[in-house]
Amino acid sequence: MTRLAVRKTYKLFVGGAFPRSESGRSYAVYDAEGAFLANAALASRKDARDAVVAARKAFGGWSGRTAHNRGQILYRIAEMLEGRRSQFVDEVAAGEGLDRDRAQGVVDESIDRWVWYAGWADKVAQVVGASNPVAGPYFDFSVPEPTGVVAVVAPQDSSLLGLVSVVAPVIVTGNTCVVLASERHPLPAITLAEVLATSDLPGGVINILTGNAAEVAPWLASHMDVNALDLTGVDDQAQAADLERAAADNLKRVTRPPVRRPDWTADPGLDRLTAYLETKTVWHPIGI
């Protein structure tokens, strides 16, 4: 008799813990062939609000870490990703319907992407910061600082590489975030949460919700304690415009959905890093 596998319950990831949705709801997740994979939690408005509270609570500590320390922790996450490589390959292959080779390529790229962003922690200030030669006896310099709590609607198609590509640049600079995972392929996001939970990343820095973006995203877009909104995973243009409009109530920084379907394997550039940075300029007199 063959051994019966023990299945995993896929839950949310909020404040470093794995709660079920407070709504008690879940939805069925299927593979590319339409076969049942698992039930994922269907996050509610309340879950989203709890996640924002957790992200806000984590912001002071995380943004106060040294850049070096954040870099170390992000690199640790990459090490943990590598350790679960085969599990991610299975989930990406099943969910996105890729053959094993391509799924491996996607997972490898995701790990390398994470390493790439880890290295930015203690470098971005030297690239986007400056000392400013003002015409007076003042020392004047500008430094980047994190925007705050960022709500992210992750890409729908690219369930791991796309997810990693939108989350890593948000947190490496000291922001915290609430992420809505790909609705159809949420499983790699929850496995990523298990990686995060074992990587010295403080609870609440990344909070991951699974469920229906159309239901939850408006609550995040209108939440007055959210500072920025990444709409990359919103495929419906009209819905994206509504969310952007709601975000204007407290002038959230908004990243609009890409015009063309993004190539997640391409060099990401600095856009996603700088989108969630504020520039702080300090003046100080020079004199005896």
Partner: peptide, 18 residues
């Protein structure tokens, strides 16, 4: 260790070094 860690991160970002 920190020095190797720091410059490791530059190896794939040299085009951003100005």
């Amino acid at each position: 260790a920190a020095h190797f860690f720091y410059y490791a991160g530059w190896a794939d970002k040299l085009q951003y070094a100005g």
